[in-house]
């Protein structure tokens, strides 16, 4: 086993695409919990609309960022050989499935607020925490996409 950093193939001028994109959907989907709680406390329909957009953009952005991550997982042998990389992908796809259902729930009933939406937001946030821990471990523990030459 080598201690050399693992180079990402899905990168622009040496900058890996997946970590560039993933912060936005993570922020949207964690913000969704805040928007839902704000609606519960204020009953202001503004927060229901914010929730619809956060769930939609979080899901779409997550799937896009996930495609870049999937590219690295499939194409880079040293990432493919990491058990933690597959576990990270698995948790991420489960998170996105929940976030997509959360968006659909709000899209079908754009004016109302469904308590199931808050439940899905909380479950998504819990999964994001675990997925992010695994993703962070890949960067800080296995040096994926890290450049130490300069």
């Amino acid at each position: 086993m080598t201690n050399e950093p693992i180079r990402s193939l899905m990168s622009i001028a040496g900058h890996p695409v997946h970590p560039m994109l993933i912060h936005f959907p993570v922020a949207f989907l964690l913000g969704l919990v805040g928007a839902d709680l704000a609606y519960v406390y204020t009953a202001d329909p503004f927060w229901a609309r914010v929730g619809l957009w956060l769930a939609g953009l979080g899901s779409l952005g997550g799937w896009l960022a996930g495609l870049a991550g999937l590219g690295d997982l499939v194409l880079v042998r040293r990432i493919r050989n990491l058990i933690i990389a597959w576990s990270h992908a698995l948790m991420a796809v489960m998170t996105l499935s929940l976030a997509s259902l959360n968006w659909l729930l709000r899209f079908n009933d754009a004016n109302g607020f469904n308590p199931w939406g808050l439940y899905l937001s909380l479950l998504t946030a819990a999964l994001i925490t675990v997925t992010s821990l695994l993703g962070g471990q890949m960067v800080y523990g296995h040096a994926i996409g890290v450049d130490v030459k300069h």
């Binding site: 489960m94 499935s97 659909l104 899905l120």
Partner: peptide
């Protein structure tokens, strides 16, 4: 999981049993 998500999105299925 990804294909299952595509199934409920395209079929617009949102029911408590699915949750």
């Amino acid at each position: 999981i990804a294909s299952g998500t595509a199934v409920f999105i395209t079929g617009r299925i949102v029911e408590p049993w699915l949750i």
